[in-house]
Design a protein around this nucleic acid. Structure first.
Ligand SMILES: [Zn+2]
Ligand SMILES: [Zn+2]
Ligand SMILES: [Zn+2]
Ligand SMILES: [Zn+2]
Lengths: 159, 159
DNA sequence: GAGTATTTGATACAAAGTATCATTAACCAG
DNA sequence: CTGGTTAATGATACTTTGTATCAAATACTC
């Protein structure tokens, strides 16, 4: 009944959890067990998960998680910027470079589900300038580019 | 019991329905009453509607519409390019310039719900080039920029 | 270690989207 | 203007995704 963390070796997991702790402290917000579990689950998944997939991964460790509580934790982690939501797949993914606040773009492979988080300055500049030109004060930018990744195209001779 | 169309005067409605007819004919696809009704309902709404809002607007004229059939019509109209789906608000909107196939961006006002459909070349070029750089063959680009429109900022002195 | 405000658990529900299969209707040919 | 054919719809039931409410638990401060 050792209750030590499972020694999953996800690169950067420890660092990410430390960062989470600091972020919470800096903002005077509480770091709860579930918030930690949600982030760490997303990190070790290594891919985007729906809220309910996430819930299932939490269950073994924490049988009393509910959809509402998972969504609450996800919302919290998103305001901290350490988790992003993919609108076009209704799923959530851990941020790949949460050091800085950022406007990012996602590239999503429709075959293997791989998601790459990019931070392209041309896109950032172009969207910002479009917003200004049309008189919008933007506060959220969803840029999700779906297609087929290189690997999948390679292994797609037929079909 | 006159079953003539209601004489709603939405600018461009007739033109849009004609275009729909031609598109269907050109592709050898069927133009059904419901498909016409869905497009015309979206057009006269003049804003984005959720599938269920749309369903309610269809009901008075066509009491036997169901969610499934509405979604089917929407999917059809989207493949034709005359309707777009807004991922970030889970809603649908008639295309504002369906003449040409296009990659568009949406600006969405979070206060009044206004949606502007833009076709910005810098964004198109930048996203395409990002895709190439990362090895993705893109087939879908979701660019949805949310903020507050000029009008709403004006009338927002307080709050 | 106790106090307090925040978070969570439990429950129930709302909203969004899909599967299946028998029936209907759009289109075409004649 | 018939039918005949095939794609689309209707009916039904269900899955997935997301929220509201309020009492109980817990993270943080002192
Ligand atoms: Zn990020
Ligand atoms: Zn792939
Ligand atoms: Zn359009
Ligand atoms: Zn507005």
């Amino acid at each position: 009944m050792a209750k030590t963390h499972k020694a999953i070796h996800t690169p950067g997991l420890e660092g990410a959890l430390d960062r989470l702790e600091h972020l919470c402290r800096a903002r005077g917000q509480r770091l709860t067990r579930q918030r930690r579990a949600v982030l760490s689950s997303l990190l070790s998944a290594g891919r985007a998960l729906s809220a309910y997939e996430l819930l299932e991964r939490l269950r073994p460790e924490d049988g009393k998680s509910t959809p509402a509580s998972v969504y609450r934790s996800l919302d919290f982690l998103m305001t901290l910027g350490v988790v992003h939501r993919l609108e076009s797949t209704r799923s959530f993914i851990a941020c790949e470079h949460p050091e800085t606040p950022h406007w990012v773009q996602f590239l999503i492979c429709r075959r293997c589900g791989q998601v790459v988080e990019a931070e392209d300055e041309r896109i950032a500049a172009a969207t910002e300038s479009l917003g200004q030109r049309l008189g919008f004060a933007l506060d959220q930018r969803v840029v999700e580019l779906t297609g087929v990744c290189e690997g999948c195209r390679g292994s797609a001779a037929r079909h």
